[in-house]
Simulated scan of single mutants.
Amino acid sequence: MESPSKAVIVPGNGGGDVATHGWYGWVRKRLEQGGGGDLCHSMHLEIDIRYAETHQVYAIVLVSAYTSDLGDDNERASGYFSRPWQWEKIKANCPHIVQFGSTDDPFLPWKEQQEVADRLEAKLYKFADRGHFQNTEFHELISVVKSMLKVAE
């Protein structure tokens, strides 16, 4: 599979304007010249993971990943948690899976974040002080994406 020519940032729920909220715009500016893998944060990462069950994807970089509806009505209504995850198909369709998680995330239990990493055999970047990754810069993510592009060349 060829290296991608662009990145797709799939933001989490309630984030506001993607160009100015959190790290999304900051990351986009730094990747504009070099492209990157598919980047997604929180709730909308389920869209990306489900897509990879049936389509080939060069890479997925997950930020704040989880496996259940967390007992939330809106999450349940999304339908992404209504059937089992097809972990083996995702791994077969996506050769590069990286995950960022933080044990102090106020919204997501670490157990679910760890389960995603284990099931997908993702390269896990585990932090204890990033919360839900709502900071305005994300240097580690840039390094990971650029490194993935070098491997693909």
Rank of each mutant, 00 (worst) to 15 (best):
Q86H: 11
G36K: 04
H41I: 10
R30K: 05
D104F: 11
A92V: 03
F81Y: 15
Y80K: 03
Q56I: 03
C40D: 11
G25P: 07
I60K: 00
R30H: 06
W26M: 03
G36R: 04
G36D: 05
Y58E: 08
T103N: 08
A77C: 09
L70T: 08
C40K: 07
Y24M: 07
G71S: 06
R28L: 07
D72G: 05
G101Q: 09
V27E: 00
L70D: 07
M43T: 07
A65V: 02
V98G: 00
E75P: 02
F100E: 01
H44R: 15
D69M: 09
D73M: 14
M43V: 12
P106R: 04
G71T: 03
G34W: 05
H44C: 13
I49W: 10
L39F: 05
E32Q: 15
W110E: 08
R30C: 02
G35A: 04
E75A: 15
D72M: 13
G101E: 10
Q56K: 12
D72Y: 14
S82E: 15
Y58L: 02
L70F: 13
E32C: 14
K91M: 12
E53M: 13
D69Q: 11
S78V: 03
R76H: 15
Y24C: 00
W23P: 00
K29F: 08
A92S: 08
P84L: 11
D38Y: 14
T67Y: 07
D48R: 12
P84G: 12
S78K: 01
S64Q: 03
R50I: 12
K29I: 06
R83S: 14
D38E: 15
F107H: 06
G37L: 07
G22A: 15
K111S: 13
Y66I: 03
N93I: 03
M43A: 13
S64F: 01
K89M: 13
V63E: 02
K111F: 10
G25F: 10
L70G: 05
C94I: 03
G37R: 04
G35H: 09
S102L: 01
Y58A: 12
S64K: 00
K89W: 10
Y80H: 11
D73W: 14
L108H: 00
